[in-house]
């Protein structure tokens, strides 16, 4: 489904992603783990294409020069130069770090905006599915996004991403700043999305432990490089992973 080969991203001369090669298999949940600054968000921005907009802004403002090298294949086609809105149309949808809900639009409007590309029927069907997945959102339909709690915003962010009819759903740190109870609720929801709809999911997290049970395959990133790859079990058993990410 998604195949990344020798991907390198430079901010000026600093290497944010160094020769990253990996695969997301269709219908699976793939995890990318790493601490702050490991390059997870850069990776997510590069896959979703947002990096192109960041690059454009930087050029215009006379800021950092961003260089992107390598190959990103999605559905057998190289998409590295395709603009973000077109990537969304093709099915790559990012649910960004810190949620980025539209704060002045209501919950329902946020979801409708998410369904910008969907047909009326798709939108209606997905909306029902999102409300069945997160019943809490249904009661908050009219509330402005900025007045939702962190957990509600995260549910809304995932719901909004689902509205865009993703084939590949990118989740960037979905557990950030949430209580353990809400974390496990969200993880169950992610698992259910994958099992019920068959959407391929790529999830980036710092906290590996709660995610391990639902992933099919995982990668560990450090300083922009992938240092380890394996199934959840292989990663859990690895002494380095145990020490660095599982607190054992």
């Amino acid at each position: 489904m998604l195949y990344i080969k020798n991907l390198m991203v430079f901010y000026e001369n600093a290497l944010a992603l160094n020769n990253v090669t990996f695969t997301c298999r269709e219908g699976e949940i793939t995890g990318v783990f790493g601490s702050n600054g490991a390059g997870k968000s850069t990776l997510m921005f590069t896959i979703s294409g947002i990096i192109l907009d960041i690059k454009k802004t930087e050029i215009m403002m006379g800021g950092e020069r961003i260089t992107i090298l390598g190959e990103i294949q999605f559905g057998g086609k190289d998409i590295i130069n395709i603009k973000p809105s077109e990537r969304t149309r093709r099915g790559i949808v990012l649910c960004p770090e810190r949620r980025r809900i539209f704060p002045e639009s209501s919950t329902l409007e946020n979801l409708k905006i998410g369904g910008y590309l969907a047909t009326r029927q798709e939108a209606k069907k997905t909306l029902e599915y999102v409300f069945s997945l997160f019943p809490a959102l249904k009661d908050l339909k009219k509330r402005e996004g900025g007045f939702l709690s962190g957990g509600e915003q995260q549910m809304l962010a995932i719901g909004r991403a689902l509205m865009a009819q993703p084939k590949l759903l990118l989740l960037d740190e979905p557990l950030m700043g949430l209580s353990p109870a809400i974390q496990s609720k969200l993880i169950q929801a992610v698992k259910e999305i994958n099992e019920k709809t068959g959407i391929t999911i790529l999830i980036a997290e710092q906290y590996a432990q709660p995610i391990f049970p639902i992933i099919h395959y995982g990668y560990v990133m450090e300083k922009g490089t992938i240092v380890m790859a394996g199934t959840a079990k292989e990663l859990t058993d690895n002494p380095h992973v145990k020490a660095a990410y599982l607190g054992a």
């Binding site: 809105s85 969304t88 980025r100 539209f102 002045e104 639009s105 409708k112 991403a161």
Partner: peptide, 20 residues
């Protein structure tokens, strides 16, 4: 709705497939 979305967060709107 997409006009208002762009006004609030350009990049988040791009993620929903809106061409700013």
């Amino acid at each position: 709705l997409s006009l208002r979305a762009i006004a609030q967060d350009k990049r988040a709107s791009m993620m929903s497939g809106i061409d700013p």
